[in-house]
């Protein structure tokens, strides 16, 4: 008796899920009844227009916001049941626009990533030093280990911050707009590092501004608008002219990248005949 192979549903293979998640700032709801699951050991990009709630979703996943309703589970356990350091050993977060004190070197920054593993009884150890060295190597920063962050290029600096999150040795990594303010070359450095991390078995969730980069570098895409998930799935399956129009109010021509199979947006122009997103609110 043979059972035809069927991929298990995403909810079983996902380390991180949100169910009926509601988050609001004051009285303004930002996320309403949001259900989402992130595939294990893959790169997920969350995209959507400004103010769609994507950064709020990431903050809620990292427990920086308390949801008004619903719950988030990490490895099937409610994140509220995790201790602070326990959560920091399971899930690392790199917020948007991080700044470090002047004079801090890459190695010093990355050492902070070991803090969730340290305690009164367990101070800095040889194992910590080895993990920091490995994180420096993963981010290709060995030569710059003792250079102050402000003396680095934007791409190097962002890689150092990601290396700090790597040193946390968490199975899940959340990145909030890791490439804003980076030019194309530096952004690619960061995206290639993210791909490497997923290949090594990390589950990466990143908020991205740019749909093109999301299609190119993510295995899984989550498209949001007005606090809801509009579409979720592999970019080649879900990105369509209609989706782009719904998210950003623009028309485009979709072509397929012959090298990667990822959808490419061409000839993007303002759509004339539909309401732009957000215009229905005020």
């Amino acid at each position: 008796m043979t059972v035809p192979f069927e991929a298990p549903p995403l909810s079983l293979t996902s380390p991180l899920q949100a169910e009926k998640l509601c988050v609001s700032y004051g009285r303004r709801p930002v996320l309403s009844e949001l259900d989402i699951a992130f595939p294990r050991e893959q790169v997920t990009a969350i995209v959507g227009p400004n103010g769609c709630g994507k950064s709020t979703l990431l903050s809620a996943l990292a427990r920086l916001h308390t949801p008004q309703a619903g719950r988030i589970t990490l490895e099937r356990r409610d994140i509220r049941s995790y201790g602070a350091r326990e959560l920091a050993r399971a899930l690392a977060l790199l917020p948007q626009n991080v700044t470090a004190p002047e004079g801090l070197t890459a190695a010093e920054l990355i050492r902070f990533g070991r803090q969730p593993h340290q305690s009164w009884l367990r101070q800095w150890s040889a194992e910590d030093a080895a993990v920091v060295d490995a994180a420096l190597a993963a981010a290709d920063l060995q030569a710059l280990a003792h250079r102050p962050l402000e003396a680095m290029s934007g791409g190097q600096r962002q890689r150092a911050w990601i290396a700090m999150a790597i040193a946390q040795q968490t199975p899940v990594l959340l990145l909030d707009e890791p490439t804003t303010a980076l030019d194309l070359g530096h952004a690619i450095e960061v995206f290639e590092l993210v791909r490497d991390l997923a290949a090594e078995g990390k589950t990466v969730v990143m908020v991205l501004h740019d749909l093109g980069n999301a299609c190119r570098y993510a295995d899984h895409l989550v498209a949001m608008r007005d606090g809801r998930v509009v579409a979720a799935g592999p970019p080649s399956e879900i990105v369509s002219r209609e989706l782009v129009r719904e998210l950003y109010g623009v028309d485009c021509t979709l072509v397929t990248d012959t090298d990667t199979g990822a959808p490419l947006l061409a000839n993007v122009r303002r759509a004339r005949d539909i309401a732009a997103p957000g215009s229905s609110i005020s």
Partner: peptide, 8 residues
């Protein structure tokens, strides 16, 4: 936020 992310 970084400090929170590090478990503080």
């Amino acid at each position: 936020h970084v400090a929170s992310g590090l478990g503080h």
